[in-house]
C-alpha cells in the first residue's frame, strides 16, 4: 500500500466505528460524540488527499477548516438539544424522541 492508501484505510475504519456508534448507542450525547469521530475520519481523508495530490495541494486543508467550524456548530446545537431534552423528560435515550412520529 502506498502511504495515501494507508491513510484512506485508517480514515474509513474510523468512519465506520463512528457510524456503528451512532447506530448502536442510545445516549444522545454519545451519538453527538460519534458524529464528531466520523467528521474526524473525513478530515484525515481530506488532508491525506491534499498532501499526495499532484495538482490541488493545500485545498484539502482549507476544506478541513470549514469542517472544523461546522463541527463546532453541530456540537453546540446537538448538546443544546440534549440539555433541553434532559430538562423536558429527565432522560436522554434517542428512543424517547418520538414526538414527530407520523
Amino acid at each position: 500500500m502506498t502511504p495515501l492508501q494507508q491513510y484512506l484505510a485508517l480514515s474509513m475504519a474510523l468512519f465506520f466505528i463512528g457510524a456503528w456508534g451512532v447506530l448502536a448507542r442510545r445516549n444522545l450525547i454519545l451519538v453527538v460524540m460519534c458524529v464528531e469521530l466520523m467528521l474526524n475520519a473525513i478530515n484525515i481523508a481530506l488532508v491525506a488527499f491534499s498532501n499526495y495530490s499532484p495538482t490541488g495541494a493545500g485545498r484539502g486543508e482549507v476544506f478541513v477548516f470549514f469542517v472544523f467550524a461546522l463541527a463546532a456548530a453541530e456540537a453546540a446545537i446537538g448538546l443544546a438539544i440534549a440539555i433541553a431534552m434532559y430538562r423536558l423528560k429527565e432522560k436522554l435515550s434517542v428512543d424517547d424522541l418520538d414526538e414527530m412520529k407520523g
Partner: peptide
C-alpha cells in the same frame, strides 16, 4: 455491527486498490 464491518471492509479494499495518480512525496 456486521453491516458497518462489511461496509468498512468493502471501502477499505476499494480504496487500497484504486490508483489515485498520487505523488510519492509530500505536497502540502
Amino acid at each position: 455491527a456486521p453491516i458497518c464491518a462489511v461496509a468498512a471492509v468493502a471501502l477499505i479494499v476499494v480504496m487500497s486498490t484504486a490508483d489515485y495518480n498520487a505523488t510519492a512525496e509530500a505536497q502540502n
